[in-house]
Design a binder for these strands. Sequence first.
DNA 1: CGGGGGCTTGAGGCCACTCAACGATAGTGG
DNA 2: CCACTATCGTTGAGTGGCCTCAAGCCCCCG
Lengths: 227, 227
Amino acid sequence: MLVRNAADPSARPNSLRELGMISDSNPIISLNEFTYRKGTEIYGEKEPAEYVYQVKLGAVRSYKLLSDGRRQIGAFHLVGDIFGLENGNEHRFTAEAIVDTAVRLIRRQSLELVAEGDAMVARNLLSMTTNNLQHAEDHMLLLGRKTSLERVAAFLIEMDKRLTAAGIMALPMSRRDIADYLGLTLETVSRALSRLHELGILGFIGNNQRQIVLLDKQQLASLDLQN
Amino acid sequence: MLVRNAADPSARPNSLRELGMISDSNPIISLNEFTYRKGTEIYGEKEPAEYVYQVKLGAVRSYKLLSDGRRQIGAFHLVGDIFGLENGNEHRFTAEAIVDTAVRLIRRQSLELVAEGDAMVARNLLSMTTNNLQHAEDHMLLLGRKTSLERVAAFLIEMDKRLTAAGIMALPMSRRDIADYLGLTLETVSRALSRLHELGILGFIGNNQRQIVLLDKQQLASLDLQN
DNA sequence: CGGGGGCTTGAGGCCACTCAACGATAGTGG
DNA sequence: CCACTATCGTTGAGTGGCCTCAAGCCCCCG
């Protein structure tokens, strides 16, 4: 279930501009904005990849499922992130809005067309793909070899970099989402967070458990081993 | 410890040609061949990435280490594979020869130079990076959510596609390598293989345990769940 | 023939999973 | 406005799958 919003032509997407996907010589590619309600699917695995997306507001999870329902979340996409960029013709993940989410859409076709003639755009596509690859490579190490406490510590450090404002980290995702990202169960994630709380490494704010303050980042970092 | 071989100019690398990295208009980029003895390092993590490599003979493992020695192998590179292609300036894995291995080297710098002016080369670089990304994404699902038997089954299916000749799969890597690829211990890998042997799904040939015949690929595939 | 590496197999232990109960919160409808 | 319900998170108890530790075999290689 999705809600249409009129695109505001005066609000040009700055990061897309920075990426060279929009310039004055290539004034408009095809730019729309959509809103997805919490929990709704943005695209499904193996669907044709018609659009590339940028999160304007909210948060998105990308995941794969096994036939019996086991789920592995490959990445969380937060405000500013671009996702759904495939180079094959179909999506390799299912993407869902974690909370009510607004995204910008770019037609994949037009993007490829521009990249063909513009080396800078092409280089940026490669650079984004490389960043995704690097994240996946680091995550393989986490999933294959780290303990539950190390995984949760690594998760907190990653999220701290990406969404901490004024010292408070407001997680949009549930314990189950975190668990499926880290290859754990939600109970194990909860226990690890409680343990970090007991150790004085983090604190909870308010009455939902999703607002976290990191009290001792150094100690937290020491729990997540270097690679 | 590495051994130099004279490059044979008459033996042009076909797959590099196919990738558009060598063409008659770009006759020679900078092509050398090196040989690495079993167990030697080709490059280390965080070393500057001066070359890109193609396996001509042998096999290579790419891995990351945690500070306490835990190892995660991200990929095996077999004959024909290209590896060491980073878009940053440094390698993100350590690469080692699993057996005596011959590789071709391409200077990264010259590759980037060519890509700048040749859209097809640029597209091929992107396509290779995308393939690596797809492999890593699938491997995250395996590492995060599959059982030991499913992992080993998936490994056998992958290797069967890549190196089976005349029905026989001759694995170059040890049980420990397989374990570090699958996020398991070598004992667990061994037990899973024994189980598949008992089930009549695979057979061993000869007196080392690395030559395997897949007797029932359908049953094997049913053990590795679809994603 | 001795040494070492690789592989298998067994026994026991532990970490994460499963199952369950409970409290808190938010959303829903009477 | 308040029960009712569903969802989310925490915590406890017990289980189990994979890990750890160990022994032994085979093969290769000196």
